[in-house]
Computed example of a mutant assay.
Amino acid sequence: MKNKKIVVTAILIIVIINIFSVFNPILLLNLKNAKKICNDYNIIEVKLNSDNEYVSREEFLDSVLYAIGMNEYIIDRYNNTDFGTIPTDDFNLPNKQYSTTDNFYTICFIAKDLKLLQTKGNTRCYYGKDNIKVQEAASILQACLSNVETDNGIFTKKSKEFMTLFIKSHFSGIITPLDSNYFTITNPSLKRKDVYILLARLLKQKRYKYLIDTKISEPASQIDSERSMTYKEYLDLTN
């Protein structure tokens, strides 16, 4: 009987944590400071009274790239690139409403070049208009910090690369033990307040993959194998 009560109690705790994680997947400690960091470094728009607004996959990917060094000059350099090797189904689906001149094309190509582009399911689509979710966000952020081998720079949800990156994110500081999602299998959509926290955590990480404005023929995507500085320190140097 005692063991039965323990099992029932454990199940109830797991259920409660999973329910809680749907509404609060990321610990919102120091939210004010995270907003300031995101605003100061101009990596995502910090909107008034919009903390509970969901963030699209497109905006999240765009923000991650700005956090690791992307700027308008780098975007212009990539605009002159052949985009034939990136997922294009996003642009062909009528409900996505992208044009071939949209900057999202460029964003996808840069992310592919850095091996950050993570598509949904086994498709080649990024589905930029959909909400970004916890597991996908964590894997993209961890990909900035990891040497991940992918199929032409693209990894898909539930692939070996995706699962490896998601697990690593729990040990690198991207996801913390106090995030409710750390204990659960739920995968809720992220709100702006969650994204502010995650991006602030990324900026505190020692830089690995990053984008550099060299204004010469070197590739814009670079690797800092020495992890010589944080992303925040790097942005301080380049801004």
Rank of each mutant, 00 (worst) to 15 (best):
N3C: 03
K5V: 07
V8L: 14
A10C: 07
A10R: 09
I14V: 15
I16R: 00
F20L: 15
P25R: 02
I26V: 15
L28E: 07
L31C: 06
L31G: 09
N33Q: 13
N33L: 07
N33I: 07
K35V: 08
I37P: 01
N42D: 13
N49P: 00
L61P: 05
L61R: 00
A67P: 04
M70G: 04
Y73C: 01
I74C: 08
D76G: 10
D76Q: 12
R77T: 10
R77Q: 15
N79L: 12
D82P: 01
F83H: 11
F83D: 06
N92R: 13
N92L: 14
P94S: 09
Y98H: 11
T101H: 10
D102T: 05
N103K: 07
Y105K: 13
A111T: 03
K115N: 15
K115E: 11
G121L: 08
G121K: 01
C125Q: 08
Y127Q: 09
K129H: 06
S139C: 08
F155P: 03
K157N: 03
K157H: 00
S159T: 14
E161S: 15
T176A: 06
Y182A: 11
T184H: 02
T184A: 13
I185V: 11
T186V: 15
N187F: 07
P188N: 08
L190C: 08
R192C: 09
L199D: 04
Q205C: 07
Y208A: 06
L211E: 03
I212L: 15
D213L: 10
D213Y: 01
T214K: 08
K215G: 02
I216L: 09
I216T: 14
I216Y: 09
A220S: 15
E226F: 09
S228I: 12
T230D: 04
Y231A: 11
Y234C: 09
L235I: 12
D236G: 02
